[in-house]
Amino acid sequence: MDLKELNSHSKALSKAERIGITCLTGQSFHLEKEMFLDIVTNHELNVEKVFTKSGNYHLSFWLNGYEYITFVTAQEHQEAFEGHKKMTS
């Protein structure tokens, strides 16, 4: 990899962080909860939820071979998904 390519990738990662993508691990993107909730409430996506031992929810959806995840509190989950038709377990 040359310096120009490294610089280009670094700028892309920096931009991703500014818009709410906080982490990339393999094929999973960790999104800020506000961004995640905005996306899933405005688009028809199958959202999987897992209740964690800490009392929070691990939420995820898949799009084009990539998983997008976030963590929310039980209260945030209830406020965002009460009546959400596409929610699955």
Rank of each mutant, 00 (worst) to 15 (best):
E32V: 10
E76R: 07
N64L: 11
V40G: 02
N7Y: 08
D38F: 07
L6T: 15
N46C: 00
F51R: 09
G55W: 03
L59H: 03
H84P: 00
E79I: 05
L13F: 15
H77K: 06
M35F: 14
E17Q: 08
Q75S: 08
F61N: 00
F51N: 05
L59P: 02
T73A: 02
C23N: 12
H84K: 04
E34I: 13
H9C: 13
H43F: 15
T88H: 08
I21P: 02
G26T: 11
W62L: 05
E48V: 12
E5H: 08
S8H: 05
Q75M: 07
E32Q: 15
T52Y: 11
F51H: 12
T88P: 01
S28V: 07
C23Q: 14
N64D: 12
L45I: 07
I39Q: 08
D2M: 03
F36E: 06
Q78I: 11
H84E: 11
T22W: 06
S89W: 11
K33M: 07
L59Y: 02
K11M: 15
M35L: 15
Q78C: 06
G83I: 00
V50D: 13
S14D: 14
H30A: 11
K49Y: 10
F51S: 07
Q78P: 12
D38K: 14
E82V: 04
K53E: 13
F81W: 06
E79R: 04
F51T: 03
W62T: 04
N42Y: 05
G83C: 00
F71P: 00
V40P: 02
